[in-house]
């Protein structure tokens, strides 16, 4: 029947199963090649570089074995940066999630300004980081910043506050700006999920005697669980390796009070010209992320 409409397969001496698995290999080959070129190669070369003591401008240097790592693990700056990285990530992520869910819940209501508000809320996310940070630095400025001016005018404070030059203000400001910049992502993802929860679930719960709080806890939250797992995973990775916002806002300062690991990588590589030790920091960062993802995904599964 079929052989009349389709040429018979050439006899290559291979069984049909082998032929089709070879076709499969051919089909995934481009993906594998691209994956290797853009992910595996940089990864391996970073690990490779981290084993040398390399002077960045010439990219030359001697075999150093694990000594870059040894130095790192004994250095206060590395652990301080790691700690900063954790504070920044947990702080900004928590605010993003809380704000994101709240705003999504508000925007999910039938408000007359809903469609306008939905577009406006995306604004910080669309804004280029450079522009956003410049605006915030201007707002935060201790001499002519609008924020200090407003707070003094309303007599909430009577001395200008140094928002970015002292601790813990610098870290708090950074966390707030991060939350402001990235909460729209949470809003959009949560809102999309909220819209797919059938009204009948809420109606059934209402009839079953659940009030608004119980409906949120028993219907909305469990339905949001899966999307929150994804949001937290993605945002943790992105926030953990955030560079431009921090670099532009505080530059890691005062001194290294807000320096995170990505800033340390940059500093080691281009300010101190130590490409090897910069690579070691980057590899350590990746290990931290892998450990986090391993435990997080295992926990999220049950």
């Amino acid at each position: 029947m079929e052989s009349s409409t389709r040429p018979a397969p050439k006899d290559t001496g291979l069984s049909p199963g082998t032929r089709s698995s070879m076709l499969g290999l051919m089909l995934i080959a481009p993906t594998v090649l691209v994956f290797c070129a853009v992910i595996v190669y940089p990864l391996i070369s970073a690990i490779y570089l981290s084993l040398f003591s390399i002077y960045t401008p010439t990219m030359e240097g001697d075999w150093a074995g694990l000594s870059n790592y040894k130095v790192l693990i004994q250095s206060g700056e590395f652990w301080r940066s790691f700690g900063n990285n954790l504070v920044w990530t947990v702080g900004t992520l928590t605010l993003q999630i809380v704000f994101g869910i709240l705003v999504a819940l508000v925007l999910h209501q039938n408000l007359w300004f809903r469609s306008l508000a939905r577009s406006l809320v995306l604004f910080p996310y669309f804004l280029s980081t450079v522009v956003a940070v410049l605006v915030w630095r201007w707002l935060f400025n201790d001499l002519y910043g609008v924020l200090n001016h407003f707070l003094m005018w309303t007599r909430i404070i009577d001395m200008p506050i140094d928002w970015l030059g002292t601790m813990p203000n610098a870290m708090i400001s950074m966390i707030l700006v991060g939350a402001w910049k990235y909460f729209p992502f949470v809003v959009i993802a949560v809102l999309a999920r909220l819209q797919t929860i059938p009204d009948e679930l809420y109606e059934a719960a209402t009839i079953d005697g659940a009030g608004p709080v119980a409906r949120f806890r028993d219907i909305t939250l469990p339905q949001l669980r899966e999307v929150l797992v994804v949001i937290i995973l993605l945002r943790t990775i992105w926030d953990f390796k955030e560079f431009d916002l921090i670099y532009l806002l505080t530059g890691g300062g005062p001194v290294i009070s807000t320096q995170t690991l990505p800033l340390m990588v940059y500093k080691e590589a281009f300010a101190l010209n130590q490409m090897g030790s910069a690579s070691a920091v980057a590899v350590m960062m990746m290990l931290f992320m892998l450990v986090f993802m391993f435990f997080y995904l295992r926990k999220a599964e049950d």
Partner: peptide, 8 residues
């Protein structure tokens, strides 16, 4: 309900 509306 027609869709049963069971809590998933």
């Amino acid at each position: 309900f027609q869709s049963y509306a069971l809590y998933p």
